[in-house]
């Protein structure tokens, strides 16, 4: 069944997302079975990590370059999965946000039992402040992020949404869906929003 479906989708998708090697037509059930068998020491409560939701499935199949219609479906679905703070306040504490941006701790098999809170590891992929020169480039530079946007309310909300669930704005983005996947709490996300959107944050100095 899934093989037939995949062939059909591939025919429709054409050459979008083509990588150097020809994109193969593979039975996804076979892949899922291989994954489930490859981690035999996984604790019972880790087995959910083998599974893919509809968005992961679509992004894998299209190698992160979904056709327009698929991208729209993903954006709509993920937007509906964003939860907002009960009090409506989106700006937390930028200094706490900076600590979260530096920390890559959490959810690896060496991180149990948890010794500290999960980090956002933003610097792994983004430039944020002038002071931190050890930053990655998988994501765009966020230097002066808020200043460039005049610290507007609309952009503050957009920043919250991008951190909570990047795929609502950018379907198949490489960025983790930190809120939706419960990697970070709403309060932690507010702190990260403050890091990029507060006028007094080093990101905007």
């Amino acid at each position: 069944m899934s093989l037939i479906r995949n062939v059909a989708i591939l025919l429709i998708a054409g050459t979008i997302g083509a990588s150097a090697q020809q994109k193969p037509v593979v039975d996804t059930v076979k892949i899922d079975t291989a994954i489930a068998a490859a981690f035999p020491t996984a604790p019972a409560d880790w087995k959910a990590r083998f599974d893919q939701d509809e968005t992961m499935k679509a992004c894998s199949l299209h190698e992160n370059s979904p056709p327009k219609a698929v991208a729209e479906t993903i954006a709509t679905r993920e937007k509906a999965r964003i939860e907002y703070p009960a009090d409506g306040k989106l700006l937390g504490d930028w200094a706490s946000g900076e600590k979260l941006a530096q920390s890559g701790y959490g959810l690896r098999f060496t991180d149990y039992p948890a010794r500290q809170v999960n980090g956002g590891n933003c610097y792994a992929c983004h430039q944020l402040t002038k002071a931190e020169v050890s930053y990655g480039t998988i994501g765009p530079s966020l230097l002066n992020y808020g200043k460039i946007r005049n610290f507007s309310e609309a952009d503050t909300k957009a920043a919250y949404e991008k951190i909570y669930n990047a795929q609502a704005a950018y379907p198949c983005s490489n960025m983790p869906r930190f809120g939706t996947n419960k990697v970070l709490t709403i309060d932690q996300i507010k702190d990260l929003v403050a890091l990029v959107m507060s006028p007094d944050s080093p990101v905007n100095k």
Binding site: S19, V26, F50, L107
Partner: peptide, 24 residues
């Protein structure tokens, strides 16, 4: 090889990561 290709792009886990996240 085809299985490896599909696994290279297979996103999973709490961070939605695949090999392609870093190496594509």
């Amino acid at each position: 090889v085809d299985t490896g290709h599909a696994i290279f792009f297979r996103r999973q886990g709490p961070h939605d990561f695949s090999c392609a996240t870093c190496h594509n």
